[in-house]
Write a protein that binds this DNA or RNA. Structure first.
Ligand SMILES: [Zn+2]
Ligand SMILES: [Zn+2]
Ligand SMILES: [Zn+2]
Ligand SMILES: [Zn+2]
Lengths: 154, 154
DNA sequence: TAATAAATAAAAATCATTTTCATTTGTTGA
DNA sequence: TCAACAAATGAAAATGATTTTTATTTATTA
């Protein structure tokens, strides 16, 4: 039902199947849109792009799918200082964290995690269970530091 | 105008003055309430306690003051998985991060920060400006791990 | 291809947070 | 001490992102 027959289409379909999610055109489109986005985006922005591809597409569908995909670890939630939701598709499958630009929304991988090592010692000290950790560096990327005017909202 | 004459009252008043915030009974009360809370709390919960002390007290006042105090670095915002606002008053003035229990809301200091050291290398790699970093370990505290039933919402 | 569970649209609801604006209060310095 | 001024507050309303609901549609699979 779709034009995509190449690697991408198939690999995303596979990804969805692995999460026991049905392979719907809208899910694939959301993944494609995220895949093409070089920056983190809001559900509403994804919805806008979806409307270019589908005559009928509801915002709740976008929200639901983004949540499912991020639960499945396929995409990443960005914790923004403004507390709105943003998502980002990162090809780096290793455990790592992100530097996010609050101005232009660029995301850069940080191939280090001071936390993984901390977890063990934390479970000892706190004697509790570590469920998740949140590491994110917020700042201005190289370009935004120079021009001092990004497109996004801080 | 208040019964508090001891160290606490004065020290909080001083804290406010240092932030060029007027010393109002409500600000002092908010600080006192937070000071007495062993766990992180929501603006609405603080409002409930404020209502016991003041005949007229609006929720926006609570929100406004919490925001100001956290901007001033007096209190800490907790980034909760449920994305609601919570605040915590931490006496530890050193740079550190927190282990927060998503069940009973206990907060435990982590006297280490793998990030501070990362910042320099990040500014080199990314060649941008680090504005802030977010490090938080979410989990279940010792007690909650054992009883598996906390009072709070996950 | 029929049966079934999952996904979706549309509309409405939710509800935490913020804004507005008229009134009150704390601060400052005469 | 007190007037003048800026800041803080209350009340009510607005906001707006996110979620829920329910009837309908669609993907899966045997
Ligand atoms: Zn940038
Ligand atoms: Zn990444
Ligand atoms: Zn602390
Ligand atoms: Zn706990």
């Amino acid at each position: 039902m779709h034009i995509l027959k190449g690697d991408m289409g198939d690999s995303f379909a596979l990804t969805l199947k692995e999460l026991s999610l049905k392979v719907t055109p809208k899910r694939l489109a959301i993944l494609n849109i995220l895949d093409e986005e070089p920056v983190y985006v809001s559900p509403e922005e994804i919805w806008e792009k979806m409307k270019e591809r589908f005559a009928r597409i509801g915002l709740p569908t976008v929200y639901r799918n983004l949540e499912e995909l991020s639960m499945g670890g396929v995409i990443t939630k960005v914790i923004h200082p403004n507390r709105q939701l943003y998502y980002y598709f990162c090809r780096n499958r290793r455990h790592h964290h992100h530097f996010i630009c609050v101005s232009c929304r660029k995301v850069e991988d940080l191939d280090m995690c001071g936390i993984k090592g901390m977890e063990k010692s934390i479970e000892k000290t706190v004697r509790g269970k570590v469920l998740s950790h949140l590491v994110q560096i917020n700042g201005l990327c190289n370009r935004c530091t120079e021009i001092k005017t990004g497109k996004g909202t801080i």
